[in-house]
Amino acid sequence: MDKLILREMHFSARHGVLPAEAENDQPFSATVELELSTARAGASDRIEDAIDYRKVQGVVRDVIGGSRKHLIETLAEQIAGRLLAAFPEVHAVVVEVVKPRPPVDFQFAGVSVKIRREQGGAAR
């Protein structure tokens, strides 16, 4: 299966369980992998035969820029569900949401969640 991958899209939003996370924007990033056939687009060289990655980014932006969520798991699930609904030709999506600087009292390189969802609701 082919993949269309949008790597490390960056956003600023207010998600998290801590009060400070509701008050101040934090950086988030997301990577999405869309599993689909790219053969038609590759042969035709026409955007009409491809998935316009600007629209993919718009879906991700709408979720991350939308209402506050407590968990990055929720963001990932909503992104996956909306991408599968918006692009029925996609067989499955892999979504990774990264919160690089959560406001915690220890140092680490951030936290991320990565999920894979298929058309029809299957997880793998």
Rank of each mutant, 00 (worst) to 15 (best):
M1R: 13
D2P: 08
K3W: 10
K3L: 07
L6E: 10
R7W: 06
E8G: 09
E8H: 05
M9E: 04
H10K: 08
H10E: 13
F11K: 06
S12H: 14
S12G: 06
R14A: 10
H15Y: 08
G16Y: 05
G16N: 02
V17W: 07
V17A: 13
L18Q: 15
P19D: 13
P19H: 11
E21W: 08
A22M: 08
A22H: 15
N24G: 11
P27D: 12
P27C: 05
S29A: 15
A30E: 06
A30R: 01
V32R: 02
E33S: 15
E33I: 04
E35D: 15
L36W: 07
L36I: 14
L36E: 04
A39L: 06
G42A: 05
A43G: 09
R46I: 06
I47Y: 14
E48D: 15
A50W: 00
A50V: 01
D52Y: 09
K55Q: 13
K55D: 11
Q57T: 02
V60G: 08
V60R: 08
R61L: 07
V63W: 15
I64K: 01
I64M: 08
I64C: 14
G65H: 14
L71S: 03
E73F: 11
E73P: 08
T74P: 05
E77I: 09
Q78C: 13
G81Y: 02
G81F: 02
G81T: 00
R82N: 15
R82L: 07
L83A: 10
L84R: 12
A85I: 15
A85W: 10
A85Y: 13
A85V: 12
A86C: 12
A86T: 10
A86D: 13
P88H: 07
E89C: 08
V93T: 13
V93K: 12
V93D: 11
V95Y: 05
V98A: 12
V98T: 14
K99W: 07
K99C: 01
P100L: 01
P100A: 04
P102A: 14
P102N: 06
P103Y: 06
P103S: 01
D105A: 09
A109F: 01
G110V: 00
S112E: 06
R116F: 04
R117L: 08
E118A: 10
E118Q: 05
R124N: 12
